[in-house]
Computed example of a mutant assay.
Amino acid sequence: MAKNKCCERVFQEVCKRANLLVLSPHALRQGHTVHLLEAGVNIKYVSEWLGYSNIKTTADKYLHVTKKIEDQAMEMYLRYVQSLNFVGVLWVLNKNVMPKHL
Rank of each mutant, 00 (worst) to 15 (best):
Y62W: 04
Y62V: 03
Y62N: 03
L63P: 03
L63G: 03
L63N: 12
L63T: 11
H64P: 02
H64V: 11
H64F: 08
H64G: 13
H64T: 10
V65A: 08
V65G: 05
T66E: 02
T66D: 01
T66Q: 01
T66H: 02
T66Y: 00
T66A: 01
K67V: 10
K67M: 07
K67C: 00
K67E: 11
K67Y: 14
K67W: 15
K67I: 12
K67H: 11
K68T: 15
K68G: 12
K68L: 14
K68V: 14
I69G: 03
I69K: 07
I69V: 09
I69D: 01
I69Y: 03
E70R: 15
E70K: 15
E70N: 15
E70Q: 15
E70Y: 14
E70M: 13
D71Y: 09
D71S: 14
D71K: 15
D71W: 06
D71R: 15
D71M: 13
Q72W: 02
Q72M: 11
Q72E: 12
Q72N: 14
Q72A: 12
Q72P: 04
Q72I: 07
A73D: 07
A73M: 09
A73I: 05
A73S: 13
M74K: 10
M74D: 07
M74S: 03
M74N: 08
M74C: 04
M74Y: 12
M74T: 06
E75R: 06
E75P: 01
E75S: 10
M76K: 13
Y77L: 10
Y77F: 01
Y77I: 10
Y77M: 09
L78D: 04
L78N: 07
L78F: 07
L78S: 06
R79K: 12
R79H: 14
R79P: 03
Y80D: 08
Y80W: 14
Y80C: 03
Y80A: 05
Y80H: 11
Y80F: 15
V81H: 01
V81W: 02
V81K: 01
V81D: 01
V81S: 00
Q82F: 10
Q82K: 12
Q82H: 13
Q82L: 07
Q82E: 11
Q82Y: 11
S83T: 08
S83H: 10
S83F: 06
S83C: 07
L84S: 04
L84Y: 01
L84D: 02
L84R: 06
L84I: 02
L84M: 07
L84F: 02
L84A: 05
N85L: 02
N85G: 10
N85M: 03
N85Y: 04
N85F: 04
N85C: 05
F86Q: 09
F86C: 10
F86T: 04
F86H: 12
F86L: 08
F86E: 10
V87L: 14
G88K: 05
G88M: 00
G88P: 06
V89P: 00
V89Q: 05
L90Y: 05
L90S: 01
L90W: 06
L90G: 01
W91D: 00
W91F: 14
W91N: 00
V92M: 11
V92G: 05
V92Q: 08
V92Y: 10
V92L: 13
V92T: 09
L93M: 07
L93E: 08
L93C: 00
N94E: 12
N94H: 12
N94W: 05
N94R: 14
K95C: 05
K95N: 06
K95E: 09
N96C: 10
N96W: 15
